[in-house]
Amino acid sequence: MRVKREHFRSPKDLPVVEYVTPGSPLCAGCGGLTTLRLMHKVLGENVVVVNAAGCMTLMAVYPFTPLKSSWLYTTMGSAAAGAQGVRDALDVLIERGKLDAADDLQVLVLAGDGSTYDMGLSATSGAIHRGLNFWYLCYDNQAYGNTGFQMSAASPLGSRTATSHSGAVQRRKDIFELWRAQRPPYVATVSSHDAVDLAEKVERARGLNGPKLFLSLAVCPTGWGFDPELSDEIAKLAIETGVWPLKEAVDGAVRHTYVPNRFRPVEEYLRPQHRFAHLFEPQRDEELLTRIQQNVDDYWAPVLAEPVANA
């Protein structure tokens, strides 16, 4: 099941223009970069990206920037506050006639999951609380990627990171729900695999004044341990197994924008990734595999039980 598309029917309808040039030092096959590139295409020009320390910080290494728009690197813990400073400044300068309204910009926070779920949560929650009119893109690679892939509060159950050698024992924080609890006008999950879904969501959120939060599963060949060629395949499997639900919440009301007709077993998603290899070798960890599948099933059961008002 897929929700009706309002703005883009197929990938061909996406804007051709690029705001992120090639030549950045990010890994080949980086899903976070794909998401940013796609989101920026739809947002259009006139953006200032406010970045939290993480992999994407190395997009711009002096004297180069791949962005045709503006960029401000802040810290790992305060990107949303930086966004507030820039947004407020633009507003007040325009209000006071010191800046031409044509020079206004959309403010986009770009932060990893470590920043989003952990260190920057206070700053982000504060910005949501104040109703800051901004975009927030969390490229969720499910660990502290830039420092060599250590565990974060987004690392999924069972995943191996550099600080969880036998696999994370906790479940991920549900940041979508944490955000939604504050009732910002728009919260969505997206994926680089479904560019049209992503574009639709940006377009739907565009008119809303306030925090517009995008959580993207950012497939990470380097940290997750798979050949970059498989980036899109892994992203697709995350969706088709139900591990990564595509959804949005407008003023808190949730709807799923895509529901697989037939869910593929979670194993298909886990198996190609080195970070889950210990679940299969030297012997299968049946118990954990069952739990992971169960968690996914438990998530979807109430969703699937709902009347198909979604479609």
Partner: peptide, 15 residues
Amino acid sequence: ASTVYNSGNAEQRHT
């Protein structure tokens, strides 16, 4: 300060 005014100049890096 480490500010880059030449937007999009990462294209000069031939990855």
